[in-house]
Structure formats: C-alpha cells, structure tokens
C-alpha cells in the first residue's frame, strides 16, 4: 500500500544504537524498537527530513594548497547532498581566504551558507 511506508533507522543518539522502524500510515508515524523517548524523536526527524552538515572542499587558486575545506553553516536536508557536492565542485575561490569566510550564500537552494573552515594565505 502506497500510504504505508516503512523505514529502518539506526538510532545514533546514544551508544546502545537501537534498531528502529518508523512506519508512516496515512499521516501517522509509528516508531518501534526504541528503548527510550529520545529515539522516538530522532526517528521522527530522520523519517520526515534527515538533516546533516555538509563538509567538503572547493578549488582555491594562489594558495599553498589546491583545496580549501568548507562546511555548511548549519545542517541541510540530506536529499540535497549530491546536488550540493556537485555545486562545490564548480566553485573556485582565490587566496587569501579567512576561516568563516562566506563561500556561497545559498548552498544548493537550502538557504544555508557555505563557510571556509580554515585560513589559506596567498602563495
């Protein structure tokens, strides 16, 4: 049935690592397998919209290294990851860059900024 979607989710909130199942039945979400309430909350957000911080690198010119490490300022939707990574591959910056510098104002349409995570001086 299309309105019943089951997902298996490993809870990573604590070291127990419960195997949870989240089943959406007509707008209702049933969580099973959690040993505590934190797991329920985690499974709900993982089921509906899992968020992750994206980290990676972009090309930098005129610096001692060819890659500048970057991160999304806040977590973004996991579904956007591959698109965001492709966007990173098209970005080119020029040294010097300071840690915290904004490399992109809006990462893959998430509305979240992309920031440099280190300084890189000019060669």
């Amino acid at each position: 049935m299309a309105d019943k979607i089951k997902k298996r989710i490993t809870c990573i909130i604590c070291p127990v690592g419960c195997s949870l199942t989240a089943t959406g039945i007509k707008g209702n979400l049933v969580i099973e397998g959690n040993e505590c309430n934190r797991g329920e909350k985690y499974a709900r957000s993982e089921y509906t919209n899992p968020l992750r911080t994206l980290t990676g690198t972009v090309l930098i010119k005129e610096a001692i290294l060819p890659r500048l490490p970057v991160r999304s300022e806040n977590p973004i939707a996991r579904q956007l990851f591959l698109r965001a990574a492709a966007e990173l591959n098209r970005l080119v910056v020029t040294a010097p860059i300071k840690r915290g510098a904004v490399i992109s104002e809006d990462l893959a349409g998430s509305g979240i900024r992309l920031l440099a995570t280190r300084d890189l001086d000019k060669l």
Partner: peptide
Amino acid sequence: ESLTGPEYAS
C-alpha cells in the same frame, strides 16, 4: 559544538 578538524585545530 561539532567542529571540523581544521576548525578544532584553529
């Protein structure tokens, strides 16, 4: 907070 490696070092 959850930092990246280079941020932690800095």
